[in-house]
Every structure is written in C-alpha cells, then in structure tokens.
C-alpha cells in the first residue's frame, strides 16, 4: 500500500486524527493522575511533581500537586489561580502564560473529544505506532502561543492518553506521565528515559 510507504508523520490526515480525538472524549469532570518532569536550562536536574489533573468542564482545568508540596492551580475564565498551604492565593491572567493557554486548549479539547476545537488552535499531525499506539503532534497556530510553545506531543494507546510532552520555544521541556503511567516516574528522570517510557506499549 502506498500510504504505508510514506513517512509516518506525513500519513496523518485530519479525519484520522478526528476519529482518534473523538474516541478520547470523557464526560466532565474527568480526572487523571499525573507526574511531571520539567527540564530547564537554569537547573542542573529536572523538577518533578505529581498529583492529579482534572477537567471540570468548559474551559476549567485544575492541577492539584500532592508531592513534593501541596499546591492547587485552577485555570478558569482566563485567570490562573495558584493556592498553596499557608499562603495567600495568587492569580494572574492566562494571557501572560501562553504555555498554559496551549496546555489548557489541548487538554480541554482532548478530554471533550472535540477535534474541531483542537484543530482551531493547533495544526494536528497523527502518527500511529505498532499495536494500538499513537502520537498526536500539535503545533500552535496562534503566533503568540507559538512564541512560547514549539509543540505539544501526546502519546497514547487505544483510547488512553499516556504522555504529554511540551516543548517550549526556549528549549525547556515538560514531560507529563498520565494515568497509570504516572506511578512509573523515576526518582531521577532523564529526557530519553521518559521518552521511551511514553512510547513503550503498556
């Protein structure tokens, strides 16, 4: 077959991705465990946090961190509110954080299974791997978001997203392990180790 002979990314097409995204939809509120490793130029080693991500419906997303320290971040109505034990809540506009906006849009669109909405914010490319594995590569359409976020990649298997890799334009990377995979975050993660974890079959 001709299509199989083409490079994998090029074989992606909108209807394909659309069907996949539709199958990922969950009714709100949808919750999933996560563990995030953040690789930053100003740090010698990655920062690791873990907790729960929740889509509360609409444009509302909640990120609850339980380790190493409790923190809850709520994104709602264009505002980001950060709450920490013993501190006054701090809020700022989503406008100042295009990375968050990218995260919010991709996450909400995925959890609501709304391919059309996702396609408005991102150019979508789909790559299928062996078995039921797949990857969606999202490239921001909004120039302002693109200035901060080079790309977001979501790896999954069947109708389960397993990883979310956000490549920031400055070179910093955040890799989120989702669902059951979150428990497998190593104590001292490396980029390569996490990448292979994401792409491995469950």
């Amino acid at each position: 077959m001709l299509t199989l002979a083409l490079p994998a990314w090029a074989s992606a097409s909108a209807p394909d991705a659309g069907a996949l995204i539709a199958s990922l939809g969950r009714p709100a509120p949808a919750r999933t465990a996560f563990a995030e490793a953040r690789f930053m130029a100003m740090l010698d080693r990655p920062l690791v946090v873990s907790g729960e991500l929740a889509w509360l419906g609409g444009d509302r997303l909640q990120r609850t961190v339980t380790a190493p320290r409790d923190e809850r971040v709520t994104i709602a109505d264009g505002e980001v509110t950060q709450e920490r034990a013993g501190k006054r809540p701090r809020s700022f506009s989503l406008r100042h954080a295009p990375q968050l906006q990218g995260l919010l849009e991709s996450f909400v669109a995925l959890l609501s299974g709304n391919a059309g909405q996702l396609g408005e914010s991102f150019a979508i490319q789909r790559q299928d791997a062996a078995g039921h594995g797949w990857s969606l590569l999202l490239t921001p359409r909004d120039a302002r978001v693109a200035k901060a976020v080079a790309s977001i990649r979501i790896d999954g298997h069947g109708d389960e997203p397993r990883c979310m890799v956000m490549q920031e334009a400055g070179g910093d990377t955040a890799i989120d392990l989702l669902g059951p995979l979150a428990a497998k975050m190593p104590a001292a993660p490396t980029r390569e180790g996490l990448e292979s974890l994401c792409r491995a079959a469950p």
Binding site: E36, R38, M40, M42, L43, L47, V48, V49, R63, V65, R69, E71, V73, I75, V80, Q82, R84, R90, F92, H96, A97, P98, Q99, L100, L103, A148, G170, D172
Partner: peptide
C-alpha cells in the same frame, strides 16, 4: 522559587 518553577506560574518568573 523552585516551587514556583514547577508550577504554572513558572512562565511568569523564569
């Protein structure tokens, strides 16, 4: 600041 960097507020402070 380290906590800030691991939170969404990181983008403001980096």
């Amino acid at each position: 600041r380290l906590d800030d960097l691991s939170s969404p507020a990181a983008v403001l402070l980096k």
